[in-house]
């Protein structure tokens, strides 16, 4: 399927999802759906670096927070429309991604993961001490009550996130099938052999961190409008870092479908658990599922299905 056709299919699915959510007519569907979509974007973004090139980023929350705080910054300075904020947040987070990559990509494995975690701490400290964006007190971002045509503002936020999800999935799939995707895979398989084959590994890794970081930032940009009150400990929350790793791992890291499946499964489970049990149980669910999958299906749900299909065709 060509990229164009694929985009059309995703747009059609997106339209159906939106229509279905409108049909239910309950605002809560949009609130819960927004969170699930946001996690699809985060998981897809994480997978571009973590799944395709094999570099595990523990600092997803920092990129997400950069996006969120970009919005807070402009809200205090001069409020801009959300789509524009998404673009700006993407650029800011992408640049930070390149910077982080330049500093840390010479490290491998656990050392890289620790360095990304350290980056998150450094950025959080900066934000806590930056009074203009609210510092440790946090910042209020009052969203308008409603927008024209759509009605309640949450419909609008949901739509923005839905479009961002579609863009993220199209980009991930396009990368996977391009020369860039081949290059990323060689880095994951064997970096020395990749260099010997002429793959400029450092450059490709920087591209991966930039794209990955940019999408995480974009996912964070509408968040202050969604939550209404943003404080550093929620924007830099552990849940984002853990979820954006766990979702691709559970879904499968080698293709764009994996993070999508993982985010849907985990995201919906968490939303249901929040309503039926308590929101505190979410991280427990993620942790248990992650352990189960690492042991039982190291290639995730997608890998499990692929193995089944292969076994049947033999």
């Amino acid at each position: 399927m060509s990229t164009f056709k694929f985009s059309l299919v995703l747009l059609a699915v997106g339209a159906l999802v939106f229509a279905a959510a409108r049909y239910v007519g309950n605002d809560y569907v949009f609130f819960a759906g927004y969170t699930v979509l946001q996690f699809i974007v985060l998981a897809t973004a994480w997978n571009i670096l973590g799944g395709y090139t094999g570099y595990v980023n523990f600092g997803s929350a920092a990129f997400f927070a950069v996006g969120a705080y970009t919005t807070v910054f402009f809200h205090n300075l001069y409020p801009l429309p959300i789509p524009l904020l998404v673009v700006i947040a993407g650029i800011v987070a992408g640049v930070i991604g390149i910077g982080m990559g330049y500093l840390t990509l010479r490290l491998r494995g656990a050392f890289f993961a620790i360095a990304t975690l350290a980056l998150a701490v450094v950025l959080q400290t900066l934000v806590v001490n930056w009074d203009f964006v609210g510092g440790s007190r946090g910042a209020y971002v009052i969203r308008p009550e409603s927008v024209p045509i759509l009605g309640n503002y949450i419909n609008y936020l949901f739509l923005v996130m839905l479009l961002l999800t579609i863009i993220a999935l199209v980009v991930a799939r396009t990368i996977e099938r391009s020369q860039l995707g081949y290059g990323f895979a060689t880095i994951r398989d064997d970096e020395q052999a990749a260099e010997a084959s002429g793959v400029p590994t450092l450059k490709l890794k920087l591209i991966a961190t930039a794209i990955s970081g940019a999408f995480m930032g974009m996912a964070g940009a509408p968040f202050p409008y969604y939550i209404g009150y943003l404080e550093p400990s929620s924007a830099f929350g552990l849940a984002y870092a853990v979820n954006s790793i766990a979702m691709p791992m559970i879904g499968g890291t080698t293709s764009w479908i994996g993070p999508l499946v993982g985010a849907l499964v985990l995201g919906i489970t968490q939303q249901v658990a929040t309503v039926t049990i308590s929101s505190a149980v979410n991280l427990l669910i993620v942790g248990v599922l992650l352990v189960v999958f690492v042991v039982v299906a190291p290639n995730g749900i997608v890998g499990l299905i692929q193995d089944r299909l292969r076994a049947r065709s033999k």
Partner: peptide
Amino acid sequence: ARSFQLPRPFASMSVADNLRVPLMFT
């Protein structure tokens, strides 16, 4: 160009794709 003492193929790619990498990138 060099070959490695212990073969270091790109494990997640088919044999043909392994050769495609230096063709594309070099």
